[in-house]
Amino acid sequence: MALLEIKGLRGGIRDQDIINGIDLTINRGEVHAIMGPNGSGKSTLGKILAGHEEYAETGGTVRFNGKDLFELTPEERANEGMFLAFQYPVEIPGVSNAYFLRAALNERLKYRGEPEISAGAFRRLLNKKMEQVDMDPELARRPVNEDFSGGEKKRNEIFHMAVLEPTLSILDETDSGLDIDAMRIVAHGINQQRTADNAMIVITHYQRLLDYVVPDYVHVMYQGRIVKSGMKDLALELEEKGYEWIREEVEAAG
């Protein structure tokens, strides 16, 4: 059974469709990159999948873990194993990162009918994950994203992902705003999380992240559709030719 199965998905914001019919199947163990020019609907796809209140599907079906995704609340989707790494991570003043993550992890355990994690076990888990994704322990103690630099916020998203161990991670432009060193660290963190049991959707505008997080498949979005799919070479081709080439192809076909 596919982990995520999207069929004919349409949707957007305020009665205006931004996604105009997407089909995409993602299996465990796969990393799919979604590329495309600005405004092509990449981030909207992530928000619809994660259940942002202002976005809505207007057609098609999505099955996640065999369940109808749109029957699940955003938090149920998360507890089923979906994770959205934000392009612009949000600050929660006064709430420590560690406390926040423990609350999130306990929600997940509760959802699965498992007992809550003890303080000691959680501390050990945090230490392990901080090491894995090269996270400054100081940032775990500080309030969620408050006064974090842009790079620290992105690293924190990957840290959250590492602690929550999702089965499907949607990384929304995690590389944006990062210098090359920060991107390497983030990419290393992402790669640490890749297993045969989970899958990732890597949304990015640029190819450069994909040098480090090598995808199994690359899809190109344009005007709310996937207009081209291929293997990792496609990303390189896009890098070389730019998106203009895609536009021309789509318009020629249309």
Binding site: P74, E75, F86, V90, I92, G94, V95, A104
Partner: peptide
């Protein structure tokens, strides 16, 4: 903000718990 609530929800935390958490953070001092 709606963004804060959505952020919490994508981590599996319900709206009600998220509000409690945010208010708690606000009152921490």
């Amino acid at each position: 903000s709606e963004d804060q609530l959505f952020y919490c929800k994508t981590r599996g935390i319900s709206t009600e718990d998220a509000i409690s958490m945010i208010i708690n953070g606000f009152c921490k001092e």
